[in-house]
Nucleic acid binder design. Structure first.
Length: 256
DNA sequence: ATGGCTTAGTTCCTAAGA
């Protein structure tokens, strides 16, 4: 089965592209980020017509996450992360699809750093790590999938120099991502491509796509019970080159 | 100057993204 993370950068602007992707690739589970839509204006009928059940956590203007499942309705377990009652951002949703636990997330960007947005990012990562530890304790097949807004290693970016001051590759961001992995999660793309050089995002600016100047920030992390079923991982890069594309490409893992 | 973007909302500018 194919499980996808896809930051669509506006689901209303991307609807035709998304339906096209679902139709062509027939993924089993899709975690969406950056819906940029309130719950009231989500294109739920179009997604259902494409054959997908979904759980949604929308927000007007920015953020927003969802989990789609082909031919079935995901069963929601949680939305949002514990630890900050003031946090109103729609960035986390968790559901069961069959025997799988899926955590779909849109981690804060954190720029500019240093500053309050970066502080929020780091705090949010600590709250995510706390939830991730709880998931592992269930000892079940689980996947954390989404736009993590972290470039884990230097070889996950086209240019260390260009991104040196960016929140996505600060030591504090990387340390928290490493601590998450150290709990026992497997970074599926890294396992499949140990040498790096695999991008999931290309900026709209500065001809980044044409120069292949990207980086890897969309990740799928597997619990040990999910990693036992691992068969492959990759990026559906072609979709980044299509008309009216998101700046992220669909990123996926396959499990037995 | 990343050789100059894209989306959405309070819309003809501003905020946010990464």
């Amino acid at each position: 089965m194919k499980i996808v993370s896809y930051n669509v950068n506006g689901i209303k602007a991307r609807l035709d592209r998304l339906i096209e992707y679902l139709t062509e690739q027939q993924p089993d589970i899709v975690c969406l980020q950056e819906l940029k839509s309130s719950d009231e204006t989500l294109p739920v009928p179009a997604i259902e017509a494409a054959g997908y059940g979904a759980v949604w956590h929308g927000q007007k203007g920015f953020n927003g996450v969802a989990i789609l499942a082909r031919g079935q309705q995901p069963v929601e377990r949680q939305r949002g992360l514990a630890g900050d009652p003031e946090d109103a951002h729609s960035r986390y949703i968790e559901a069961e699809v069959g025997d799988l636990i899926i955590g779909g997330l849109y981690l804060p960007n954190g720029n500019p750093q240093p500053g309050p947005k970066f502080d929020y990012k780091l705090r949010w990562m600590e709250r995510l790590n706390a939830r991730a530890a709880e998931l592992l304790a269930e000892e079940r097949p689980a996947i954390l999938a989404g736009d993590f807004n972290v470039i884990p290693n230097d070889d996950d970016s086209f240019s260390v120099r260009a991104m040196a001051e960016d929140a996505l590759m600060q030591p504090e961001s990387r340390e928290r991502y490493r601590m998450l992995l150290a709990q026992g999660w497997t970074d599926a793309l890294r396992t499949r491509f140990p040498k790096g050089g695999v991008w999931t995002f290309w900026d709209y600016q500065a001809g980044a796509w044409q120069r292949d100047a990207g980086f890897r920030i969309d990740h799928l992390l597997l619990s040990p019970q999910a990693a036992d079923r691992f068969t492959g991982a990759g990026v559906d890069k072609e979709y980044r080159g299509r008309e009216k594309a998101s700046d992220h490409a669909p990123t996926w893992v396959t499990l037995r």
